[in-house]
Design a protein around this nucleic acid. Structure first.
Lengths: 345, 345
DNA sequence: TATATTTCCGGAACCGGTTACGGAACCGTC
DNA sequence: GACGGTTCCGTAACCGGTTCCGGAAATATA
C-alpha cells in the first residue's frame, strides 16, 4: 500500500488510530494502549481522559493490527461440507449465537467446491492463522488433516462425527438411545412388524441407530429380522425406494423407523402410493426433527437431535480450548422423542 | 504479546515467516515479498528459488499481517437478523459459494441477541475494519446506520429489502410478478373465489405480492375483494388463523394465495380442519419454495424465490464493488411458478 | 533529610507483511 | 572508454497495535 506521510492529527475521513489519540492527549501510544485496555501503570485521571477522547473520536482498534500484535485473530472458523443439508442451519445458529455472544467473529467455510475447497482451506486458510480455533463437521477425507491440525496446536471441536473416528474433541448426540426410543415407541403402540430404513453403515450414526433398533426389538421379544431393514442414503428418494422394497419383501409391515427425516418423507410417499394409511396401517418414526417434519401430513413423529444445543456446546468448548482450558474429549447431548400424528393420530 | 528475541531460522514449531525465507535464500524480505507476489524487479531464477523454498517450508503469508499492510482484510461480512428463517440457508449457500470461490473469507454476523448484537456490530465490528464489504438482510432499525456506512465508503449490498427503502445497491426478486403468476395460475385452473393471506404491509415484498394478486384478479375480470384478504405474519400459526378467518367470512373460497410458504402450511392445516379437500375444494399456492414445501401432503405449489442465485448475485456484486467497479443499484431475479399437487392433483 | 519504594509514563522493539526509493552491476551504444 | 538505460536487489519506512524496560517524579520509610 502506498503510505502517505501526512502525520496529521486524524481530521480526515481516515479512521482514527491510537496515534491520533496519543497526539490529542499528549501521551505516547504505549500509555494510550494501556489506558484503553485496562492495564496497570496508568493514572486514573489519564485513563478517563483517554477514554473520553476515544469516544469522541469514535476510535475502535484495528482488528488486523490487534491480531498481528496479539498473534490471535479473534475469529473462530466453522467448516461444514455442505450447506444443502437441512439440519445444518440449526447447528449453525447455535454456533453463531454462542460465538457472537463472546465477542468472537465467526468465519464460515464450506467445501462446496469439492477438493479445490478442501485444498484451499488446508493450505491457505488455516496456515495463514485466520482462525484461532475450528469447529467442524468433518468432510469425508479430511480427517487425517484435521487430526494433524489438532496435534499442531489448533483448538478443534468436531460436531456430529459419523463414526467415532479419531480422538478429537467431539460433540454428538445419543444415536443409540435415539434408535432405542424410536423403536420402543413403536413397540409400545403395539406394532409388531417394525422395519427400519437406514443410511450407509460407514457412518457411526447409522450403526448406532440400527443397533438401538435391534437391541430394543430383541429386548421386546420381537426378534431382529435383517430382512426388515434396508440400506440406503439420507435422501427422500432413497427412503421411498427402500420403503417400496421393504413392502415387497413383507407386505404386512406395520411400522417403520427411518434413520433420518428425509428418508421418512420418502417412506411416507411410498406408503401412500402402496395404499397404506399412516399411521393406521403403518406408523412411522424419523430421526433429526428438521423443520419440515412438523409440516408434513401427517406431521412426522421423530427423534429430535438437539442441533442448536450441539452447536452451542461445540462453540463453548472451542472457546474454552482457545482460552487454554482443557475440554472433554466427547460430549453427547440427548435426543428426545417428538410424538406427532405419524404414529399417534 | 511477549516477543522472544530468538532470531532463529524458523526450525521450531513456529510458522515460517517471510524472514525465514529471506534468511534461507540470502535475500531481503522485500525481495522475497516481490518474488512471492509476482511483482517486477525479480530475477526469474531468484523467484523460482524463493517459491521452492516457500513450498518446502510450507510458508503461507499471515492473514493479519497482510491485512494490516494492505489495509484490506480479505473478508466479506454477511449480516442476517436471524438464522431461524428457513429461507436464509439457501441464500447463505449462494453467498458462501461465490465468496469462497473468489478467495475471500465469509464472516457471518447475526443480530440474534437483539440490540446488543446490533450495537456491537455497528460500534465494534465494522469500524474495526474487520470486513472489506458487507452483504446483508437489513435488520429492522439499522437502515440508517447501514446507509451511513455505505456513504462512509464501505461497499454494501442489500439482499431482499423489504420495502425499497433507501438507495443502497439491492438484490431482490420479482415479488410483483410472483404475485401475478401465483394468482394467474389459480385463475387458469378455473378458480373464481381466490383469497390471499399476506404478511405485514410495512414490508415491500408483501405490498408487491398483494399488488400482483390484485392486478391479476382485476385483469381477469374477477374483481378485487378486500374481504378476501387478511393481514398476518410470516408464520404457520398466523397462516392457520388467517385461513380460518377467511373461511368464516366466505365459506365458498375455492383458492388461496399465501404470501409465504409457512403461512400456506398453516392454511392447509386450517383447511383440513374445516373439512376442505386440497386441491379439490380449495387450491393453494405459497411463496418462497422452502425445502419443506416439497415434503408436505399434498406438496405445495409455490412461487420459487431464487434465493441461491440471489445470494450468489449479491456476493458477486459486493466483490465487484470492493474491487472498485461500479455496480447496479438494483437487481431483480425472476421468481418461477413451481406447480405441485396443492393446485394440480 | 537521605534513602527506598511506588506510581506513571515514554522510548523502542516487535508482530509479519508491502512498497517507495536509491544504488550497484550489467547491458549496449557511439 | 565514457555514458545512458535496464535489471535486480537492499534499506528503511510504514500499517496500527502491544509490551518490555528504564527512568523521573512522587510518595513512603528510615
Amino acid at each position: 500500500m502506498k503510505h502517505t506521510a501526512t502525520g496529521n492529527g486524524g481530521e480526515a475521513g481516515r479512521r482514527p488510530t491510537i496515534n491520533d489519540i496519543a497526539k490529542r492527549a499528549g501521551l505516547s501510544k504505549a500509555s494510550v494502549s494501556r489506558a484503553l485496555n485496562g492495564k496497570q501503570d496508568v493514572d486514573p485521571a489519564t485513563r478517563k481522559r483517554v477514554l473520553k477522547l476515544a469516544t469522541e473520536l469514535g476510535y475502535v482498534a484495528s482488528a488486523s493490527a490487534r491480531a498481528l500484535s496479539n498473534g490471535r485473530s479473534n475469529c473462530l472458523g466453522l467448516l461444514v461440507p455442505s450447506l444443502t443439508w437441512p439440519w445444518v442451519l440449526e447447528m449453525l445458529r447455535g454456533v453463531a449465537e454462542e460465538i457472537e455472544r463472546s465477542g468472537y467473529s465467526l468465519i464460515l467455510y464450506t467445501t462446496a467446491n469439492g477438493e479445490d475447497s478442501e485444498r484451499a482451506f488446508m493450505t491457505q486458510v488455516v496456515p495463514a492463522g485466520a482462525v484461532d480455533g475450528l469447529a467442524l463437521v468433518i468432510p469425508p477425507g479430511m480427517l487425517d488433516y484435521i487430526g494433524r491440525l489438532a496435534k499442531g496446536g489448533l483448538p478443534v471441536v468436531v460436531i456430529d462425527d459419523r463414526g467415532h473416528e479419531g480422538e478429537l474433541p467431539t460433540v454428538a448426540t445419543t444415536n443409540l438411545e435415539g434408535g432405542r426410543s424410536a423403536t420402543q415407541h413403536l413397540v409400545e403402540l403395539g406394532r409388531r412388524r417394525i422395519a427400519m430404513l437406514h443410511g450407509q453403515l460407514e457412518f457411526g450414526c447409522n450403526r448406532d441407530r440400527l443397533e438401538g433398533y435391534k437391541a430394543t426389538l430383541e429386548e421386546g421379544g420381537l426378534g431382529f429380522d435383517p430382512g426388515r431393514t434396508t440400506t440406503g442414503y439420507f435422501t427422500e428418494v432413497s427412503g421411498a425406494s427402500g420403503m417400496t422394497q421393504l413392502l415387497e419383501s413383507d407386505p404386512r409391515i406395520d411400522a417403520v423407523f427411518a434413520a433420518n427425516d428425509l428418508m421418512a418423507f420418502g417412506a411416507m410417499r411410498a406408503l401412500r402410493s402402496a395404499g397404506r394409511r399412516i399411521p393406521d396401517d403403518v406408523a412411522i418414526v424419523g430421526f433429526d426433527d428438521i423443520p419440515a417434519s412438523a409440516m408434513t401430513h401427517p406431521p412426522l413423529t421423530t427423534i429430535r437431535q438437539p442441533l442448536y444445543e450441539m452447536g452451542r456446546k461445540a462453540a463453548t468448548m472451542l472457546m474454552a480450548a482457545v482460552g487454554g482450558d482443557s475440554i472433554p474429549s466427547r460430549v453427547e447431548l440427548p435426543t428426545s422423542l417428538v410424538i406427532r400424528a405419524s404414529t399417534v393420530p
